[in-house]
Design a protein around this nucleic acid. Structure first.
Lengths: 336, 336
DNA sequence: CCCGTCCGTTGAATCGATTCAAGCACATGG
DNA sequence: CCATGTGCTTGAATCGATTCAACGGACGGG
């Protein structure tokens, strides 16, 4: 059960130091010694103990990615991108889910701090970053994902959510709609408030256009359906003709509520719908949904890139802020 | 940067052993000593080093969950259930994605072995379990998730996929269909072959009923669409009137291919469609999809339960096999 | 007043890999 | 033949938390 360097060393007839060198700097060791050690490793089924290695190194070869919602395909794609880039650098990514709860987020950060991970990629639940600053003080760099961190000293990778919100609203306005609704929440989530801000700005540019906010507790299919039910009478009564949803899950839920049940609403004839994230389900929806696309995997890989920089620079280097531009994918939910 | 038990001990005017006791067995320490130590911890911002703790303990307080596809909501729900149960036991779950690739699976297992995780919950890509047996030999228990392991010495949590496949096919037969198609693959994935087996058995019970297999390379929306395109002419030409999809992603893709484009097919009038997993998107599909439901979160929490048992029993205890029964959720894709 | 308990506390030993100053053997040059 | 390298290898020290045999002091019983 306990196969350690010591056993391997004994078996190969060398010292523990040599075994370690074979593992980490084989070029400093005579070739046939290397072979003998490898043979011993093979025979004993030796697997290095990561904990010991890490204890000595003071830092682990793994990164943590804390996302707001693993159920959201957007984040799993970001994770995919991060994993791929990390693998190139010989590191692994642990995925954790905060479920938009500050407590769960704190719990995960606590554990990662104990594990002394090499870095934390996080899409924070709240504005407050003191927790992350404490981490950095302890030598663990962090990079904010999907959230710009202008003022703070953290690097960040984000997509311009204000531009994205504007893109969505402008498209509805361009296709002749004037009474818009924005569905999303809670507003304390930066992405939501930014998208709303962008949509507001776009609406403000067009005279007679209005934008009404419908808050939600979370961004899920169910909440979308609930919002859709609430919107249904308003579309006929108050003439709402365009809806911007803060993400695609909401949009899909909204669509379902509008198109089914008694007295269905025609889309895009009576109302146009724009989602956000362009998850694959958006293209396969009842009426395929126009959506704002973000370069998901690129976000993940870039985040890893930045954290590697931050780790190399001993935390000294200037923080970098990478901002990607969103794009609009037009589908049948807004144009015939 | 280096705040260790030693500093805390010095600050509080006690020995390192006492600090450790305060952390792990506070009831053995005099209350006001506990307070002094806590104060020192607070002042110094001490966070225990997980690597050191783990090195000593020989095992970490974390579990690994290796799934076939993080993009599939089925698995994220299983993960949620596992996380919740693990949290109760004071453990964390690291989520890893094998993407149905044996190489990626092996890579993850390798890393988890090095990390000496407390246990591995895995939905294996292939039948071959020698890799897991090597893990167990090293003292790391494993539990198979979503896969029965009758003969082997591993505990498992699964859903009776044969019964599920039969449930799906029988429902189509009960609603009058006779020429069925099964879409899914690759067949080396046990879930797929079991579901197919169940469907075959159900079909064999009814005279004149037939079942045709359509293999896929993976279980994704895109592969579903491809299969749907291939099925389209066959429905009109050879009279296929019922489709069993090996999971909901495939089903959604199939549906999309059938309902759109030139010459759409009416559902459920011309063809009935049954999916598998009952992910939330299935209920929100163009025509809501009848699907075989599995108790997803329960699967995750039960798996953690079993691994805790296995870990306690020093690997000695008998392996347990928990098999849940699937149920059918009937929607508009099969009945008017 | 002495002895045995019990409670709280101590600190050296331990886990396993890495590091690095020191050592060894052999070769090369003067 | 000695001095100086050069190329490999050695093994004790180290990382930080936990464990456990041992210890000191207080207390009660005899």
């Amino acid at each position: 059960m306990a196969v350690s360097v010591r056993e391997v060393a004994a078996r190969a007839g060398v010292s523990v130091g040599t075994v370690s060198n074979v593992l980490n700097r084989p070029e400093h060791v005579k070739p046939d010694t290397v072979d003998r050690v490898h043979a011993a490793i093979e025979e004993l089924g030796y697997v290095p103990n990561g904990a010991a290695r890490q204890l000595r190194a003071g830092r682990s070869r793994s990164l943590a990615l804390v996302v707001l919602d693993v159920g959201n395909p957007f984040f799993t794609d970001v994770a995919r991108g991060a994993e791929a880039r990390a693998a190139e650098a010989g590191m692994t990514v642990f995925l954790a889910n905060s479920d938009e709860s500050p407590e769960r987020e704190a719990m995960h950060l606590e554990i990662f701090e104990q594990q002394r991970v090499g870095g934390v990629l996080i899409s924070p639940v709240e504005e407050d970053l003191t927790r992350l600053e404490a981490l950095r003080a302890r030598g663990i760099p962090a990079v904010l994902v999907d959230r710009e961190a202008g003022a703070s000293a953290f690097s960040s990778v984000s997509v311009d959510d204000v531009a994205g919100g504007a893109l969505a609203a402008r498209h509805l306005l361009d296709t002749g709609r004037r009474r818009l609704a924005f569905v999303g929440g809670p507003l304390r989530i930066r992405q939501v408030s930014d998208r709303f801000k962008g949509a507001s700005a776009a609406v403000a540019d067009v005279s007679e256009a209005t934008l009404q906010l419908f808050g939600t507790d979370e961004m899920s299919l169910d909440e979308g359906r609930r919002a859709g039910e609430a919107l249904k009478p308003l579309i006929r009564d108050t003439g709402i003709d365009g809806i911007v949803a803060a993400n695609d899950l909401l949009a899909i839920g909204i669509q379902r509520a509008l198109l089914f049940g008694p007295d269905p609403i025609r889309m895009p004839a009576e109302v146009g719908l724009v989602g956000y994230d362009d998850i694959s389900f958006a293209a396969s929806a009842v009426v395929p949904i126009t959506s704002v696309r973000q370069p998901r995997e690129l976000i993940g890989s870039t985040a890893v890139e930045l954290i590697l920089e931050a780790a190399d620079g001993d935390g000294a280097g200037e923080p970098r802020h990478v901002v990607f531009e969103p794009s609009l994918v037009v589908r049948a939910s807004t144009v015939a």
